Amino acid sequence: MSSARELLPAGVFVLERGWLSSNNIVVRGTTQAALVDSGYWTHSKQTLGLVESILGGMPLTTLANTHLHSDHCGGNAALQQRYPALRTCIPPGLAAVVRDWDPVALSYEPTGQECPRFVHHGVLMPGAGIRLGDLDWEVHCAPGHDPHSVVLFEPASRTLISADALWQNGFGVVFPELEGDRAFGEVAGTLDLIEQLAPRVVIPGHGAVFTDVAEALARARSRLAAYVQDPHRHAAHAAKVLLKFKLLELQRAPLRDFARWAESTPYFLLVHRRWFADQPLQEWLLTLISELVRAGAAHRDTEFIANS
């Protein structure tokens, strides 16, 4: 039986990263190469090394971001510095915000994350497509996890770069829902789009390349139905994701400092205020940390918390 990676088009290489950094997809053509998503900023040096190991001296001419969360575009600035002729394309919805560089509108300050400033040179216009390497990819809107996200589909091989719209076991936190905007329906619509595209192989934003698309869609729809039935479940999951994401960056921190970070992070406070205001903030925070520890996602002693 062929592995999922063996079904990828010639010239497509997937650098599977840990959950702090999104997967990097290198597409090598005859004379030039492209990269989809650039990982988290603290991993920029590693990203450069991994990409260069695939390029083998071939020029990197195009960088495409499926969306602008910090774990997908944090390496943009380092790549632009290394490759001055690099053309960076982003989804159109935040083009003006990137041009003016508003870290609040870009979600970096509200989520307590960082992303070095970068520039963009074009947009991934849905319906227009983009050429990566020697392959032509369709650009499709994929709102839900992020209202401006796109997915990329190569129809000849039926390869889908799904970003955080579909993983093998779910999808990314639906951030607009936390702000009070109805977006679960958009998640459902994006899952329907993926089903209509009928990909043969999927490269997710995080995790392994996979081919069991029907099963993945079924799992995603089951999870979505649970969130629709109980939005508090989704909000609690999102709060733990924010904590875990920061812990992945810090690896180990004094519990007091980690709690201070959470209590000063606007998005964390927003989730508490909208969904868990009946619980004192510090009590709620300690409950979430305890749940991460029980799940094996963190380790805690008297004074420190560490990633597991």
Rank of each mutant, 00 (worst) to 15 (best):
D257Q: 00
G296F: 11
F153E: 09
I203F: 02
N24F: 13
H43T: 09
K45N: 11
H232F: 07
P143L: 01
L124F: 13
A78S: 04
C89L: 15
L288M: 08
G75P: 06
V213S: 01
V97E: 06
F184V: 13
A10C: 05
F175M: 05
V12K: 02
F184W: 11
A262Y: 02
R274W: 11
A85Q: 15
I130D: 15
D71K: 12
Y83Q: 11
S44Q: 05
G18R: 14
Q46D: 13
A4T: 00
A165Y: 01
H69T: 04
L281H: 12
A236L: 10
A259P: 00
Q80R: 15
P254C: 00
E109L: 14
A188C: 10
E303M: 03
D71P: 13
L250R: 03
A306N: 02
G180M: 11
A85V: 09
T111P: 03
R273H: 14
P143I: 00
A77F: 11
V104M: 04
S38N: 12
L197F: 04
E303I: 02
D278C: 01
V174Q: 08
E6H: 05
N23Y: 07
A128D: 11
A183W: 11
L224R: 12
R131I: 05
S44A: 06
P155I: 15
